[in-house]
Amino acid sequence: MVSLKFVIHYSFHFLVPLGIALFFFRSEWKKVYLILLLTMLVDLDHLLATPIFDSNRCSINFHPLHTYYAMGVYVIFLFYKKTRVVGIGLLLHMLADYLDCIL
């Protein structure tokens, strides 16, 4: 049976970005949705961990691109039009991972 944690996590990775793209970027929603999905590549930093995946490990402040310092950079991305969508995607990803930590 699918767990609530699984549904919430993957909704934040696929459905919430789609909603953001459709609602806030209507004229170019496909491009924005693709960019939001591509920000999931931030999880490549999981390859540096041993083991690579641990269902009981909180990603926040464990993996290099999931640290509070990195999140500070992602917030700065929001202030510039060219990086805003990437910043939104990265912060949304951090929120999804944070929700995993508290669930």
Rank of each mutant, 00 (worst) to 15 (best):
K82G: 02
R57F: 07
F79H: 05
L38F: 14
D43F: 10
G72P: 10
F25N: 03
V85D: 01
L78P: 06
I52G: 02
L37Y: 08
G72Y: 07
F25R: 02
S27M: 11
C58F: 01
V86T: 05
K30P: 07
L65Q: 05
D54K: 04
L91E: 06
L38T: 08
L48R: 09
D43V: 06
V73M: 13
L34S: 12
G89I: 00
A49D: 13
P64C: 00
V73C: 11
S27W: 12
R26F: 13
P51N: 00
T39D: 10
E28G: 14
L34W: 13
L44V: 14
V42P: 06
M71F: 15
Y69M: 11
K82E: 11
K30G: 05
S55D: 10
D45L: 07
F79V: 02
F53L: 12
M40E: 12
Y80F: 15
H93L: 14
Y33T: 08
L91R: 03
R26Q: 13
V86I: 13
L48E: 09
I52P: 03
F77H: 03
M40I: 10
L41N: 09
L34I: 11
T39F: 12
P64V: 03
A49T: 07
G89R: 00
I88A: 01
K30T: 13
D45A: 08
I60M: 04
D54G: 00
V32L: 07
V85L: 01
L37K: 09
Y68V: 08
K31S: 11
F25W: 13
D45K: 09
M94C: 15
R84N: 05
Y74I: 04
K31L: 15
F79Y: 12
S27Y: 13
